[in-house]
Amino acid sequence: MTDTRMTFDGGFIMVPWDQFDEAVEWYGEKMGWTLIGRGEGPPVGRKAFFKMPGTGQANLKTFESDLSHFTSEDYHEGTCRFCFRTANLDQTLDYFDRQGVTCSTPVKMPDRTRSADIFAFGNVRLTLSEDKKLEGKFPESRVIQYAAKPLWLGVSDLDASIEWYSRICGWTSSNKNFQDRGFALMREAWDFAWLEKVDSEQLSKKANPGARLYFQIKEQKDLYKKNEWLKEQGIEVSDIVGERWKGFHFYDPDGNRLNVWSYY
């Protein structure tokens, strides 16, 4: 079962049910995204789909109190970041600051890019990664597409985490070595996930952030097999929810939440 392919496939940004319409308007206006569709109904509630100006689709999803996969209970951002790309980080942060959006101080990543967090609608944390090659191409958009490395995880032990993600998710360690700076890169088809060594007090037993990156397993029969296999490894795994679309989540040893879906 460890060879079941899990590929990055976007994700959900969670919003409260009773503020869904307000959130749709907020993300369209503030991010510079184009609304391309909405959906509503059981079993996975209200959704909105946005075309980002570069590439990719961003998805809003309401919390659902009766489904453990979508509940707002135990909401906690933790150290699992879902990362998006912006052309000029300073200008983007200045814009959001003027809009009353809380922003963090930019940090320099080991690959010499810069990143910062913003706390978007409902105080959901989104992480912005600067890509100067996009400067001037999308002047009406602040958040252009998914980041080149869309996942950023805080972990207590880099070597142990590299081994765990290799064994459980089938990822491999990048040829680029940043461990002397407290980072490691994991790859599936490309270098897409940062692991960062953080102090243990920054980690939580279990985090349920508002911005939730998902991995796709194409065949639903393999989704079920992966869910059972993870349980056999002693990993905390949620029930599978959905009908045509199906999804679940599980946790790494540091409490980072990983989401999986299938829709075929």
Rank of each mutant, 00 (worst) to 15 (best):
G154M: 07
G170S: 04
D117H: 02
A48N: 03
N256D: 10
Q145L: 10
I217W: 04
H76Q: 13
G78V: 02
E22G: 02
E228N: 09
L203W: 00
N208C: 09
E140L: 15
K221C: 07
V143R: 01
L35D: 03
D222Y: 08
R38Q: 11
G32P: 03
Q91A: 14
C169N: 08
D90V: 12
Y165G: 05
D252N: 05
Q233R: 10
S166P: 04
Y165F: 10
L153Q: 05
T55G: 14
S129E: 15
F138T: 03
L213N: 09
F138Q: 10
L89M: 03
Y95E: 03
Q233N: 09
D254H: 13
L153W: 06
K47W: 14
K231L: 10
E196H: 11
S141K: 08
T55P: 08
D239P: 09
G182R: 08
I168P: 07
K176D: 13
D254G: 10
G45V: 00
D254T: 13
P43M: 07
R112P: 07
D97C: 14
A147S: 14
K47E: 15
R98V: 05
A160L: 12
T55V: 13
T127W: 02
A120C: 03
E188F: 06
W190F: 15
D18P: 00
R181E: 15
I162F: 07
G56T: 02
F248K: 00
L60K: 00
K30L: 09
V15T: 08
F96E: 02
A23D: 01
W194Q: 05
R244N: 14
F138A: 09
D66C: 04
P253L: 00
M109E: 09
R212L: 01
P150D: 10
E188S: 14
R167T: 14
I162L: 13
D254R: 12
V124P: 00
I118T: 02
G78E: 00
A58T: 08
E77M: 00
S161F: 05
L60A: 03
R114Q: 11
E77Y: 05
